[in-house]
Write a protein that binds this DNA or RNA. Structure first.
Lengths: 134, 134
DNA sequence: GCTTGACCCTCTAGCGACTAGAGGGTGCAT
DNA sequence: ATGCACCCTCTAGTCGCTAGAGGGTCAAGC
């Protein structure tokens, strides 16, 4: 209801940086707003809603392209939302895979770190483990 | 023992791409080798060892800067290896934090996805959750 | 000896998603 | 009228590569 926001107000209202908003405009993620007499961007409530959507999706780790896709789907309100479900599922699965990768990595590091006897570098197990043939 | 590798052989021996090796040379991570008459890079065993170290550390998720630091420490063989331990610990902790973040994210997505009734987009809970006052 | 094809060279630009900085204009309060 | 916070555009930097253009080298086969 509070129309006509400056870019700074919009940034504050959504927890986004001013530069990021201009960037989103540049890549066509957020539509370019009207300009004031002094060439300032003047945002309306529609922009605020759009940017909130973007922020939330980005916070959930969706890529810019996925956000674009989700917004495209969200605008076709009479269609089935199965496509939305698919995007969300793909993203969740990718995250689960990344968690598995990182867990394996952390475990390997645990082994390395536990083997450290804190002597000199010459017989450091961590360095040894990294350098295959010393 | 098998001296004088071409960049392609070195790449094959370490599982690195040729372009990546040239990149490592450019940023000063791997020392520039001698050149043949035809201006080809000619690598020696020392390079092979160095690159293997780099690869292994990178595979464990260490950043380029951390690899640089670890190599610097590895070369001072009479020093204490506590500094090595510190770098490894910092990295492991950062990974654990990232895992926690991603787990929270995946759980949020689970809730969203479970709420999807596969009806129209107009009453899609996923879209609703993204758009705060849609 | 000439061609083919695999390999090598340099240089530049691109990816994702911003972030930072230079160099300047606007708007409002004192 | 002066100061200051805010806004504008444009360019370049971040990280760790990757890809492509446009060329040179080398060994093998005919």
């Amino acid at each position: 209801m509070s129309d006509k926001l400056t870019i700074g107000k919009l940034a504050g209202a959504t927890g986004t940086k001013v530069e990021t908003i201009r960037y989103y405009e540049q890549i066509g993620l957020l539509p370019a707003p009207e300009r004031s007499a002094g060439n300032y961007r003047t945002y309306e409530d529609a922009h605020l809603r759009r940017l909130s959507f973007i922020r939330r999706a980005r916070d959930l780790g969706f890529s810019i392209d996925q956000v674009r896709e989700l917004m495209g789907l969200a605008d076709r309100r009479d269609q089935s939302c199965i496509a939305v479900d698919v995007v969300a599922n793909q993203h969740r699965d990718a995250i689960r895979r990344k968690i598995a990768d990182l867990t394996a990595l952390a475990n390997e590091l645990d082994v390395l770190i536990d083997s450290c006897t804190r002597n000199t570098v010459a017989d450091c197990r961590i360095i040894e483990a990294l350098a295959p043939s010393g």
